[in-house]
Amino acid sequence: MEVNPSDRGELVRLTPFYFGPAEKQLFGVYYAPPPGQESEFGVLLCNPWGQEYVRAHRAQAQLALRLARQGLPVLRFDYFACGDSLGADEEGTLAQWQADVRAALQELKRRGRVEEVFVVGLRLGASLGTLVASGREDVAGLVLWEPVVNGPAYLAELRAWHEEKQFYFLSEGREEAAQAPGLSAAPGENVRGEQFPTELLGFKLHANLCAELQTLDLLNLKRKPARRMLVIESQAQPAVEQFRQQVERLGAQVDYALIESFKMWTEDPDKGLVPQPILQAAIHWLTQEAG
């Protein structure tokens, strides 16, 4: 598909495709920049997870298109067991998704004919991008949009949202409906005997993923994830500030943008909301860095 977004004749070509091993095929959309304007850097977008992913899709797609218009080859993709990629909900793990990010980096380098890539991650995608980038030489920089720094805090946040949402549709005064399995975030146990909800906001939260999330802590990072980083928040979080200080101690140069905005990953997708000031900040930073 060729997209001619402006009267300047900037053609961006979109190619949907599957990549990766046959049993774990990942869905991706590659955005080829207008011919003759290709940058030597690519951009990989890393999605949030679950309900946040569904609601953020429109903004992620627009970000990809706008970056490609600026000459940056872009790859958006779905992790295994998410979106259009193969796999059922219960097969997704943080370890697998980090492997998926690595596979996507390779795919982008191959398709875009680039040696270095910027990784842009939103929410859990920012955490995955950071973990993968740490120790790699081919990640030129990171844009972390509302990164999930602490797994347990993230789970608690999603669980509160899940429980709140349930009150709108649990059958009124029907005991049997309230007790139906899976309907009320019925607690189960993970491998360490800890309590966890079995589903969150329409998506399965299985024991392995829950256990991984409970140990996720970006403050434990031992190597800088990239030389240059941009952290974007709409509301300053102490954990993000601690993370910023941590990666600066590790030698990263971190820019920070506090941009007041709605959190579109929690908004009704039918509103079609896209936080343009944040997209603009990310695009500006990336195009400056890509020179």
Binding site: Q51, V54, D84, K271, G272
Partner: peptide, 9 residues
């Protein structure tokens, strides 16, 4: 406006 994976995939 939910993309082709549908509500909750």
């Amino acid at each position: 406006l939910i993309h082709r994976i549908g509500p909750n995939r």
